[in-house]
């Protein structure tokens, strides 16, 4: 993490009017923006367009950033809002989410039933687990998680934000972030143990 002083200096340099100084900021925060785009936006053209929009918004609003939060949280919030506005405009967001959400409730119930069955001796694993299969299975399951779940696990696991910081970025209460985090990881674990035999996974 960058220290507060060097961040202040960087912002001063950018505001002094040299666009090339902005390159430094882009390089420091492109991973964060990329993670959010990666999990929220599936189309590559949209990602390109939004990445530009996000950084130009950051540049234009830099004057109003007064260190009321960490710079990374502030940038995360701009990226989050830009993506959500975009999805709303495309009318994908609410629609998809609602459906995904309900699916998840059902899936969760089904998974529980499956697990119950799995304990009976008649159960046979449908596939022999191998590392790359397990890995791609989990990643596919991540992709079908509800959008808020995907965002929370990304900000938590890839960008090491705290629950409080994620709640600031996403504009939801900390309790919501906690429950999204808990439920998404439990769902992924449940799907994995339903798909593969537990003993195999131990190897």
């Amino acid at each position: 993490m960058e220290s507060l002083d060097s961040e202040k200096k960087l912002i001063e340099n950018i505001l002094a009017g040299n666009p090339d100084e902005f390159r430094v900021l882009i390089n420091q925060y492109k991973k964060l923006v990329s993670h959010i785009l990666f999990r929220l936006i599936s189309n590559q053209n949209d990602r390109d367009e939004l990445s530009q929009e996000i950084f130009i918004k950051i540049y234009e609003n830099l004057k109003s950033f007064k260190f009321q939060s960490k710079l990374s949280t502030w940038i995360g919030r701009i990226a989050h809002n830009t993506c959500l506005n975009y999805l709303r405009k495309k009318r994908l967001h609410f629609y998809d989410d609602q459906i995904n959400y309900q699916k998840d409730e059902n899936k969760e119930r089904n998974i529980r039933a499956d697990i119950h069955e799995a304990k009976s001796p008649s159960f046979l694993p449908d596939e022999v687990a191998n590392q790359s299969q397990v890995s791609s299975f989990i990643n596919n399951e991540i992709e079908v998680l509800p959008i808020q779940y995907r965002e929370v696990i990304t900000l938590y696991h890839l960008d090491n934000f705290s629950i409080k910081e994620i709640s600031e970025i996403m504009g939801v209460p900390e309790g919501t972030v906690k429950s999204h985090l808990y439920r998404s990881r439990k769902l992924l674990k449940d799907r994995l143990t339903t798909k593969y035999n537990l003993e195999e996974l131990c190897i």
């Binding site: 991973k31 923006v33 990329s34 785009l37 990666f38 936006i41 390109d48 990445s51």
Partner: peptide, 8 residues
């Protein structure tokens, strides 16, 4: 990376 190289 979800970003193209040289996007900056």
């Amino acid at each position: 990376s979800a970003l193209l190289p040289g996007f900056e």
